[in-house]
Design a protein around this nucleic acid. Sequence first.
DNA 1: GTGAAAGCGCTAACAG
DNA 2: CTGTTAGCGCTTTCAC
Lengths: 359, 359
Amino acid sequence: MVKKKPTIKDIAQMAGVSPTTVSMVMNNRPRVSDEMRDKIMAIAGKINYRPNLLARSMVNRRSFTIGLIINDIADPFYPELAKGVEEKARELGFHVILCNTNNTHELEKIQIEMLRSRNVDGIILSTVSCNDPHIRALKDDAVPFVLINRTITTPGFSEEVDYIVLDNYSGGYKAIEHLHRLGHDRIGIITGDLNSSTAAERTRGAIKALDDFNLQQDASLTKECHYSRSSAKKAAQSLLNLENRPTAIFAQDDNMAIGAREAIIEAGYTVPEDIALIGFDDIDMASLAGIDLTTISQKKYEMGAAGMEILSQKIEKGNSAKLSRIKLKAELIIRKSCGYNLYGYKKTKIIGGHVNDER
Amino acid sequence: MVKKKPTIKDIAQMAGVSPTTVSMVMNNRPRVSDEMRDKIMAIAGKINYRPNLLARSMVNRRSFTIGLIINDIADPFYPELAKGVEEKARELGFHVILCNTNNTHELEKIQIEMLRSRNVDGIILSTVSCNDPHIRALKDDAVPFVLINRTITTPGFSEEVDYIVLDNYSGGYKAIEHLHRLGHDRIGIITGDLNSSTAAERTRGAIKALDDFNLQQDASLTKECHYSRSSAKKAAQSLLNLENRPTAIFAQDDNMAIGAREAIIEAGYTVPEDIALIGFDDIDMASLAGIDLTTISQKKYEMGAAGMEILSQKIEKGNSAKLSRIKLKAELIIRKSCGYNLYGYKKTKIIGGHVNDER
DNA sequence: GTGAAAGCGCTAACAG
DNA sequence: CTGTTAGCGCTTTCAC
């Protein structure tokens, strides 16, 4: 019943030629007569031949598969990035194996090992931490890879790896700058996982801005937290319970900002009247009417697609490919959650919106 | 520089044994002396041996890879489902290749072909349409597969395929029933792609409810649409422009409801005071304060995980696995977008919420 | 307990 | 233009 899949050999036999000839036809090589080519293609079509890519991979040492390793596909930041990777991959003839790490080094290690065992041609990786211990082996063993979204900062090594990330430092700076321009001087900060490069950089940028604008911060205003809605919510709650609570909160990603927003609303405050709120990433949700989250933009799809493009270069050219160290520009997206929705910081009443500019 | 990856042969040589023995050790077969086993494992560890899964797949005819084919990973319905698949797959020892179809049969076909060429052990598929032409070949060729979220309805064939979906019919019914209980008798319906089983069933359920409650509908109230925010927005706009506009709208997924909501707000109306709005799927966004979308729930993660479990059974047992035809229960989630947030339909004022029950 | 040989399906020399 | 041979890395009889 379960008839064996037809192989190149079967076709060869039916066509009265050698497997080699069939192989050449299947790979569109020249040196085959047109009649032969047609005959073989006809047979292949008739018996519904499908080349065995595994076998091909074995001899070619190319699997046309890449691995995409991210924290969590259900985190609203990643789906678009994954889509960018997938679509570009398809365009370039690759398939992508999706791997979650749940933000743990252990799982990341397992995933990398498995992908390598599967002979993927390369790996796109959003690192768990900025001192990720598993990257070095990739480099040493000449496995093509590119870091995406999150990179590493290991001194002496981070300069040698390909990456494409946002300019998180300036993003963090801009977030605080915006709040400062609106007159805030007690700004709560809820950080992402500080061992990730994104949160570390966003925080660094934020602190620089705080310094530049002479906003001395007491430590209680910065809550070390994680990239999750629930933990951000808790952090926001403790910020709200401070004796001298902040008038604005910078949550280091939009998902966390949503969590902070929940805390604010549940505490009976309103955004932005009582508390201004700024996020990061510009995920889909941020732009919904009623959410209107001011944030720092990220081109997630483009990042994914570009990452795949770079990886493809690495795969093709091996070591001779030039290093790609790309920092995408971070842009402030002004909506209503900080009390303004106009560019240029001109004070205006918003019809039907929540605006409070009488500070 | 790029030293070849060590193989079983290398180990054999170093240990002074045959490749067979090494293979047996690697596969935890008995009949090998403990000393030999230890020696081989030690060498493998030292030279950092990693089995070549491609080679293994070739001889075993098992790749421990499955394909997941969905419309679009960036559609907010899918990430959680994908996560369910991925995590269960990992638990069972599989890797998953992620494929988008962008809701086109052409791409779906290409993806299926590629996956089969790659010798995946099975496929989890959210069909493009309920008469999907590419399923039959899978069945005929005994490729293990399970339909997820969307199934097929082809008479005489649909009974023979495994699937796990929501009970969309009763979901559609409940949506209308809810609106009816709240007193609405002019209900706009914005459908998903009607060639998909989900939209077809939701619509069928909705129509049945309309009938049951003697709500005669004129055709202009039903807008045939697509599962996209933008098209739903347009559909909602035309609904709002109707001479006798509906007092409630049933959008067949939450993402579309968000689109409809935009249209409603931009037209200067409010939800639910002017227009009640009900969605479907219970995506993350639906529960945000300020959105508060009443909807029909779907356990997306569980659906993905269960789908993977079923597929694994099919893979293990082949044809002897019993057919799984699972319909998950659809539950109404009452929030504020229809004017109530209390269970039991008791009229109550909601503090701080938008409620209008003086109809 | 261990090894020799064959083969999974395909492609890459090299011949002719 | 086409065929022969060898081999990718692994597992699987079947001997010993």
